[in-house]
């Protein structure tokens, strides 16, 4: 579970304010939303942190949920692994209300994780994080030969692609035949 407090404190100004409390504008309480991935682990995230995601921002902008309503209706992202969603939430919290740096060195080194993160970030429409991830993915093949690129990015060979295509056709043919047989059965 991610800590929203951590996110808030990281976005707080370094210098404490010296203005008397009575003169300060009343603070608008921050609203929070809840998201979960494939593992159903719910993450509490502030609306400010979620602004990085164009998809979620679009979803929540007109909801006007109360805290209880938000808690009761977490956004389900069943297509995203729990640990990947955790990374995304952490990144959003770390960069809440801050200009994003030109580079991000805290991305996963493990390529499978990085690829999953790219897909998740692309789906959630987090533009800056997508750019960082894509840069890192591009760097993986810098100066590599076509064969090395195929290996690093786990690209199927032409033969593998052809076999997969054949298999897909075969499966589609079988399904179509099954449907025809079922339709004929229904007609009888």
């Amino acid at each position: 579970m991610s800590s929203t407090e951590q996110g808030t404190s990281s976005a707080a100004p370094a210098e404490p304010t010296t203005a008397p409390e009575s003169a300060a504008a009343p603070e608008v309480p921050e609203s929070f939303y809840y998201v979960h991935g494939k593992d159903k682990v719910v993450h509490k995230v502030s609306a400010g942190a979620l602004q990085h995601s164009a998809l979620i921002h679009g979803m929540i902008s007109n909801l006007g949920y109360t805290e209880e309503q938000a808690k009761a209706n977490p956004f389900p992202f069943e297509n995203i692994d729990g640990d990947i969603l955790q990374m995304v939430v952490d990144w959003c919290n770390q960069h809440k209300g801050k200009p994003t740096p030109p580079e991000d060195t805290n991305l996963p080194k493990q390529k499978e994780k990085l690829f999953d993160l790219v897909l998740a970030v692309n789906y959630l429409e987090i533009k800056e994080l997508l750019t960082y991830c894509c840069k890192q993915v591009a760097m993986m093949v810098k100066g590599k030969s076509p064969e090395e690129i195929r290996e690093i990015w786990m690209i199927p060979t032409d033969a593998e692609d052809e076999a997969a295509e054949k298999e897909a056709k075969k499966r589609a043919g079988k399904e179509a035949a099954g449907e025809t047989a079922a339709a004929a059965g229904d007609a009888k």
Partner: peptide
């Protein structure tokens, strides 16, 4: 879209090498 994002970042000769990795 993500693939195109990566391809847009690739250096020209990496882009050429990627295009030669397979027919797809």
């Amino acid at each position: 879209v993500a693939i195109q994002e990566v391809l847009n970042i690739l250096e020209p000769f990496d882009y050429i090498n990627f295009s030669q990795a397979s027919k797809r």
